[in-house]
Nucleic acid binder design. Sequence first.
RNA 1: GCCGGGGUGGCGGAACUGGCAGACGCGAAGGUCUCAAAAACCUUUGAGCGCAAGCUCGUGCGGGUUCGACCCCCGCCCCCGGCACCA
Length: 729
Amino acid sequence: MWTHENIANMKTQLRRLGMSYDWDRELATCDPSYYRWEQLVFIRMFERGLAYKQRSRVNWCPSCQTVLANEQVENGRCWRCDSEVVPKEIEGWFFKITHYAEELLAWCDRLPGWPERVLTMQRNWIGKSEGAEFDLPVAGLTDLAVTIFTTRPDTAFGMTYAVLAPEHPLVDTLAMDEQERARIAAFRQEVGRESEIERTAADRPKRGIRLNARAVNPFTGEEIPLFIADYVLMGYGSGAIMAVPGEDQRDWDFAKQHGLRIIATVKRPDGWQETQAYLGDGVKINSGFLDGSTVEGAKRTAIDWLVSKGIGRSKVNYRLRDWGISRQRYWGAPIPILYCETCGMVPEREENLPVVLPQDVQISGKGDSPLAEVATFVNARCPKCGGRARRDTDTMDTFVESAWYFIRYCSPRYEQGMFDRSAAEYWMPVDQYIGGIEHAVLHLLYARFFTKVLRDLGMIKLDEPFAALLSQGMVIKDGAKMSKSKGNVVDPDDMIRRFGADATRLFTLFAAPPERDLEWTESGVEGASRFLNRLWRFVQAHGDEIRAAGRAPGDLSDAARAFRRVIHHAIARVTVDVERDFHFNTAISAVMEMVNALHEFERDSLDRVAAAERAGLVREAVETALLLLGPVCPHMTEELWQALGHGESLFRQAWPAADAAALVREQVTVVVQVDGKVRSRLTVDVSAPEQAVREQALAEDKIRPWIDGREVAKVVVVPGRLVNIVTRS
RNA sequence: GCCGGGGUGGCGGAACUGGCAGACGCGAAGGUCUCAAAAACCUUUGAGCGCAAGCUCGUGCGGGUUCGACCCCCGCCCCCGGCACCA
């Protein structure tokens, strides 16, 4: 209900602003007829292991009472409500987006229509790092080893200790007695107490405790101490590291605190002070068989050695984590999985889809899904054996719904499947997608992932959903992003009431190019309104003249020809700006220039231009202005268009084409510079030969004093632009 | 720290492929109309100097390339965004 009311309000507002959407393709993602296909895809993904359930530590928003995906946490806070996120151990569903990490990354180089900053954000988020993984045997325990990941296998000879994440499962095995177990438990508690925000605060002293067990550095055969420390995270790599304090700043800090040995394995540059780790390039030293090679070479040699010994391999790690999609909310598509007492976890049968979100749900706020309270929903029959079964009570992240709606748009009423394949393959990919930058690693990443999943399920031949992306800026008012919580929102209805939809639209497009933030100022809207009023009044005042006017004659006076050039220049400019760059701001300014010139022409031409010529040009200018401005200010332009006696709508007219002949100039102004400084201007025929222009420039009265007594070393002539006279004293 | 984007008048922003920096709009100042105000219209509006013609300076800072640099190159500074004890 609430959702449908919101949709209705939003539609009213969009209509009021005169937005032309194809409402025939409208769809609601909360409609079971939409999300049933999502449930079907979920089942397909489940069958292929792309959707799986796992108990793990997740991000929990205590205010929304739900799990959040990593992408939905910003600086330790919920993207939606800004509350501090806490860790919580919970069972939930995940989509295996990590399976596509490499492809998602690789395609970042094949999306030339996307802004660089969005691609950068996605690359950062995926966070590929290449290195090696290998085992450190635990001293005295032949069958036990700690697997570590490093990007610097070349520094292995400098490994003077190793560190496991506090939560690392091996830690329990390594603990030797009750006393040590107690120390570990105490340390874990200390670390676990901290919030995400505290834990990620920069420059925090590294804490850790030493284990009784020791490991062996396989490169040197030496025994080294083992630690657990808070600076090693279970969620990345293998949750354990080799520590090389000589070449890693974190290890250096920790080693200094605990009095551990530091070995340099790369030759330092001259004058290097041993006050920090050395991260640069250089020749390997103190590194056995790696000595003498470069860092890059040593990395390869070290990996080859690990492989030959059978204890390690090269390894690529990604920062990207699987997409946690379970939500404990009362919206989003239900997860179509049942738990049968005899068959276990079973997906719903396809013919039983959709699993519909029940109505009349009580919100308990207990941290459980509200659906768990609805007996008629929870209790069901096993699709396999018909016995008693329980439904999964989580719903899918609503980002799943938005991850494919654009494909549904291609055939919104299609009932035989998620989409009509031929329609989808005809329309997709989206030629030009538009969205806010805040979705750089949310929606835009999920949509790319989901598209690839659909492709691999054999449903569509499509690698990427969006060929080109325009990421618009935010609306800024009084120095802050416009938002309800900041209380600085502008009510569109209020703007429309006071200035009209056209002026509101005109200002919005005029104030800045779309990819930049838009600074909202009321005086700017007033300015837009002023411009439109001026045009309105002009057309009212000249209506009769325009309606009576014929076409302007072919042979025009100079003044008329100059003005006609402005008209056609505007057409050319607007066409290019809009079609190529979406730079409506410069397009609009070109129309404003043209309209300004129109006022001037009307004022100054009375005694200089013949009446027929004048009326013809005024008509051409006004009609062109209306056509060019039509998409921006549809209401007023259509009304004026009709007022000028046109029976057919403005929006049924062809887009104007610039008359190449009108753009031609017979004469141009050429700047004359002496040593790069503008000293004079010349008006010359466009066809004037270079030599003549040069001579004319040199002969100029204003130029002579600047070159008298100096030797002219060189004269640069740029046809139609400038003459630069270079002198030597 | 790494990666990306930026830095141009009082403000939002223009400047096409290296060729007149500041288009267009806002704001401001002065004027016309008016008893007055609003609206509208006209003029001025990068800084400095000058009666003027005009001159000098000027696109974050310092260098460089070039006849010529907001634009290209090198070295910095600052702002915004992303990532970050990620091994």
